[in-house]
Design a protein around this nucleic acid. Structure first.
Length: 830
DNA sequence: ACCGCCGGGTGCC
DNA sequence: ACCGCCGGGTGCC
């Protein structure tokens, strides 16, 4: 629906302004189907060494002076203090060691001198280090130019790099102080800059990041604009502001960020690249609006909602609701097997709606896809962060679209790290960031090294290209939207005597197992075991019924061959994950996406571990065992909802937590039967369990979880959101189901049955009902079992909130594993 | 002179 | 390249 809003405004705007051809708009609806292929075929676009992941932990080893030769044969020009790129040319007919030098524009400047290339080719080919070039000064010489080469590598590879260089008689000059960060105005030569970079603490970094989006005071973003008369829906002030801002952006002919005119030439302040051609202005940007989709519905007095789950056809329907029926719009859905594949037909439409899956499917197939063939007036990517991973086919397909104006709509432009931002910026065709290395050298690395200037650049960039509106945003001292109050209460639960005994028995057993692993320093190799213990304890806080078909796991005995043990652990991991529990990936530190289990029984996002595997001598980040792509085991949480069959289900027995929930629900119904509630758990099997007492008490409820089909989800949401008296009052919701788009504003009470690892996941869940369109005060109840693993999880959550910014600073794997071990100790009070 | 030296031709990888 | 390097021409003072 956010998509709809934009769509409306842009389109109408397009019709208002003469020189903009209203034809050929092109819009995206998000979809959740993701094909494995996207992850498997990841590109290796950058040829100058080191996987992206290794890049983040790279340190500056030192510098080397060299020469670029053969200038007269090429057109690429370079001026003082300008960055250059090195590119291996293994198939060069004259020298298999050849290393090509390109300027920022990608034009060839020359080659590294043969002898130097002979030494460096090995380093690049074996990805021992990343080598970056900088031409320190301009020479009036048509044949050669000097280049300073900076060597970046993970600490572990330092020795290998240095010794290899030594063999060729080369020694690195130690990095000058502060030279770890490239500074735009570094002075005439490569002497140490006069200003040392200011390194910030994690605390400072955090507050700086908060400031990045605090751009609301800027005047150019508070102007309002009325939509065209063809829009029937009244817009809220912040929507009018967004409209005005977007119009300004589309008519923006200013130089893009970091470019200025100098003596008739265009100069980039970050890379010092100069060109005579004017760089393209940015006609578009990022709408980072976490108020989500309800904005329009809110304006129309509620109703609707969750629309995007119905897929693009419903989007189009909703879209038209907001339009004056007198306005004739040519629109089509580009979706499904019978989509109209004629590019000419598509060009004649005002609006074409499609899905990421359709786009991705067509991308890269033989012949030109109709979507790729058209030059669109606009491309709008809804849920734009879906292209944050640059290695997916989906992202590449989106980047390949031809359009005059480009927009990204997303509530979360940065999710894990700054890396997320690169594809978005690249999609906007901001030079020179369309190439990853320039982004990395000028923004990402300086920021992750805590350099203040890097942060300023990032702020400047984001300020230029994004409009940020959050629920908390203020315009001229007034909140943009006023939401009803939201109250969070922790309700502590004491287990009854019988439950406590069971819990304590499992806890004692688990604690002794884990402390043995601790003593043996083998926590990480037995991670599946440890993980299973912790999950079991968390489940026991809910109910002693075991939702998976596991027997109460006997502690893994040291008998059996190592191979048997390993297979057992992998099975155990798979089983535990299948009950829908929210686990984190130790590489991206976020919730698992497409989890896979390694040979050594550790679980990661498929994409994360695949990136690790691309390195030479890839090791498991958890236990340092060898990892191979062929040995990864698939497992999708929630795929096996182990709702017990009617016959095998034991006679119903309640639990302390279930009792507490039921008491609350009954009390709410007694006070006001119209109040609706969300009951949220990570364990989908427990949602099934709750159905029993709900039925017994005559509650009308529906259920929403990740295993449901798109159309069933849509039906569930619309029946829950409906105001009809017969509509259900309770929604059983699995914590991570549904995208950010899911709107459940009919509910004003939330019961969170079990705490999650990641407090952000909880917040996101609460936001599904506490958002625009909510008319009642929202009360959230978190059930926490006293003296249990749950209480300790809350402690860890607090710690994590404080460290939320840590994601931006690169962390070594040893730090990550140590943090894990500490977490586990905290959890079971060891 | 199986040298030195001169000066022209020449030039990435 | 206002260099280095190559190879031919040349050769007392």
């Amino acid at each position: 629906a956010l998509l709809l809003k934009i769509r409306l405004q842009l389109l109408i705007y397009g019709q208002n302004i003469q020189y903009i051809n209203p034809h050929r708009s092109f819009l995206f609806a998000p979809d959740q189907e993701e094909s494995l292929a996207q992850f498997i075929d990841s590109a290796l676009a950058d040829s100058s060494a080191l996987a992206e992941e290794a890049l983040d932990s790279a340190v500056l080893l030192g510098n080397l002076r060299g020469n670029v030769v053969g200038l007269r044969y090429y057109t690429g020009v370079v001026s003082k203090n300008e960055m250059v790129a090195l590119q291996r040319e293994p198939r060069n007919a004259h020298d298999s060691n050849a290393i090509r030098v390109n300027n920022i524009n990608g034009d060839q400047v020359g080659h590294l001198r043969r002898q130097l290339a002979a030494a460096l080719a090995f380093i690049l080919d074996n990805k021992l280090a990343r080598i970056e070039g900088l031409v320190p000064y301009k020479v009036n010489n048509k044949f050669t130019m000097p280049v300073q080469l900076s060597f970046w590598a993970p600490e572990a590879q330092r020795a290998a790099v240095l010794s290899h260089l030594q063999q060729h008689g080369l020694n690195l000059a130690p990095p000058t102080q502060g030279a770890g960060v490239w500074r735009a105005r570094a002075g005439p030569s490569y002497r140490a800059p006069s200003h040392q970079p200011v390194h910030m603490t994690a605390e400072q970094l955090k507050s700086e990041f908060d400031k990045i989006f605090e751009d609301i005071k800027e005047d150019n973003k508070t102007a309002e604009m009325e939509p065209a008369p063809a829009v029937r829906t009244a817009l809220l002030p912040h929507q009018k502001q967004a409209l005005a801002w977007m119009v300004t952006r589309e008519n923006n002919w200013e130089l893009p960020p970091f470019w200025e005119l100098r003596g008739g030439l265009y100069h980039n302040l970050l890379t010092n690249f100069t060109q005579s051609q004017r760089p393209d202005s940015v006609h578009g940007g990022i709408l980072a609006d976490d108020m989500g989709l309800v904005t329009i519905w809110g304006a129309r007095g509620g109703g609707g909602g969750g629309v995007e789950l119905n897929g693009p056809s419903a989007d189009l329907e909703q879209f038209e609701q907001h339009m004056d029926p007198g306005v004739q719009l040519r629109r089509c859905l580009y979706y499904g097997p019978n989509r109209p594949r004629d590019p000419d037909f598509l060009s004649q439409q005002h609006v074409v709606l499609t899905t990421y899956t359709t786009l991705t499917t067509e991308h890269g197939v033989k012949g030109v896809s109709p979507l790729q063939a058209v030059l669109w007036l606009r491309v709008v990517l809804d849920e734009g962060h879906t292209i944050r991973n640059p290695n997916t086919r989906q992202t590449r397909a989106a980047l390949a679209l031809k359009a005059q104006r480009r927009w990204l709509l997303t509530g979360t432009p940065i999710q894990n790290s700054l890396q997320d931002l690169w594809s978005l910026v690249s999609f906007l065709k901001l030079k020179p960031f369309t190439e990853r290395q320039w982004w990395h050298r000028t923004i990402q690395r300086p920021v992750s090294l805590g350099d203040e200037q890097g942060l300023r650049r990032l702020q400047g960039l984001l300020r230029n290209i994004t409009l940020r509106r959050t629920k908390n945003s203020q315009v001229r001292g007034r909140p943009v939207v006023t939401l009803p109050r939201r109250t969070l209460c922790l309700q502590h639960i004491s287990l009854c005597e019988e439950e406590r005994q069971i819990y304590q028995a499992i806890m004692d057993e688990g604690r002794s197992t884990i402390s043995r692993y601790l003593r043996e320093d083998s926590m990480m190799t037995h991670y599946a075991d440890v993980f299973a213990i912790l999950v079991r304890l968390r489940q026991l806080c809910f109910h002693y019924y075991l939702p998976t078909n596991s027997s109460p796991a006997p502690p893994t005995t040291p008998d059996g061959t190592p191979e048997e043990l390993r297979a057992k652990l992998v099975r155990k991991m798979k089983m535990v994950l299948s009950c829908g529990v929210d686990e984190e990936c130790a590489i991206c530190l976020d919730s698992l996406r497409l989890p896979v289990i390694t040979h050594c029984a550790h679980v990661f996002c498929r994409l994360c571990i695949c990136q690790v595997i691309q390195q030479t001598n890839a090791r498991c980040p958890m236990c340092r065992a060898e990892v191979r792509a062929g040995q990864l085991v698939e497992c999708s949480p929630g795929e096996t909802d182990s709702t017990p069959a009617e016959s095998t289900r034991p006679a119903w027995v309640s639990s302390s937590k279930v009792d507490a929930l039921m008491l609350s629900l009954i009390e709410i119904r007694r006070q006001d039967p119209n109040i609706k509630s969300l009951v949220v758990s990570q364990f989908t099997a427990f949602l099934s369990l709750i159905e029993i007492p709900l039925r017994a008490e005559g509650f009308s409820f529906v259920r929403f979880d990740g295993s449901m089909s798109r159309s069933r989800r849509a039906k569930t949401v619309s029946s829950f959101q409906s105001c009809s008296p017969a509509s259900p009052t309770i929604l059983l919701l699995s914590l991570r189901a549904g995208g950010e788009g899911l709107t459940l504003t009919a509910a004003s009470r939330v019961f969170l049955m079990d705490p999650a690892w990641n407090p952000a996941a909880e917040d996101q869940c609460f936001d599904r009902c506490h958002r625009l369109g909510q008319t009642r005060d929202v009360i959230i109840t978190k059930f926490i079992v006293k003296d249990s693993v749950e209480e300790n999880m809350i402690k860890i959550q607090h710690r994590k909130r404080d460290l939320a910014i840590g994601a931006f600073a690169a962390k070594s794997h040893s730090e990550v594993t140590k943090a894990r071990v500490d977490e586990i100790r905290t959890l079971i009070d060891l």
